[in-house]
């Protein structure tokens, strides 16, 4: 077999238990290197759209809540445009940066994300993806970052038409991707790494 001359991607290794030193030193208490941690907020004052707070946990296969998980999220603005130069549709809301880096609380393991609800985003097929945040989860024991999505349980019609959700054969698992509404503008999203109600992880 002829091997094409593509270079293989640098292989992943676990973020390990000390990821905060590099990625959130101020939250760890190692202030002094950077004025503030990157990704502290995905929006600025004046961002258009519905303000929401998503909280959640990351749980392992033994039912233990991780205290060392780090999650990054990436989302579109309220119109569904990504705040990135490589979104071909033009400029997003200047008050939406779209990217956040959040960590599990060192005592409770609960993480909190304050943002706006993103709009729908076109899929290459021509269909429309329901409002969602892309989430990437790393921690000790995770050998390659886990990719999932946070959808919203109250976006029933959009979720039904979403081509990514439609791809999931085991329909009863779709609910693992839906943030549960717990109050006005408040959601709860649990990442279960393994087991009975394991979260869906993607290879996109």
């Amino acid at each position: 077999m002829t091997k094409l001359p593509y270079l293989p991607e640098t292989p992943s290794q676990t973020a390990g238990p000390y990821v905060h030193i590099g990625l959130t030193p101020n939250a760890l208490g190692n202030a002094g290197i950077y004025p503030q941690d990157l990704g502290a907020a995905p929006i600025r004052d004046g961002a258009k759209g519905e303000r929401i707070t998503i909280r959640g946990t990351v749980t392992d296969g033994a039912g233990m809540i991780l205290r060392d998980a780090l999650i990054e999220t990436w989302q579109a603005d309220a119109q569904g445009i990504y705040p990135a130069p490589n979104d071909p549709r033009g400029r997003a809301d200047p008050n939406v940066t779209g990217w956040a880096r959040i960590i599990a609380d060192f005592d409770s393991g609960v993480w909190t994300l304050e943002t706006i609800k993103p709009g729908t985003v076109p899929h290459p097929s021509g269909d429309t993806m329901a409002p969602h945040l892309s989430a990437w989860v790393v921690a000790r024991g995770i050998n390659i970052g886990l990719q999932t999505r946070i959808y919203f349980e109250d976006e029933v019609a959009a979720n039904e038409k979403c081509p990514i959700l439609a791809r999931i054969e085991h329909k009863d698992r779709v609910s693992t991707l839906l943030a549960k509404k717990t109050g006005k503008g408040e959601y709860w999203f649990e990442v279960k790494l393994q087991g009975e109600d394991e979260t869906i992880f993607f290879d996109l």
Partner: peptide, 15 residues
């Protein structure tokens, strides 16, 4: 205990 036991859902990348 931190490895997903189910297969990843694979699809082409999107925006």
């Amino acid at each position: 205990t931190r490895a997903p036991s189910r297969a990843l859902i694979a699809a082409p990348s999107t925006l």
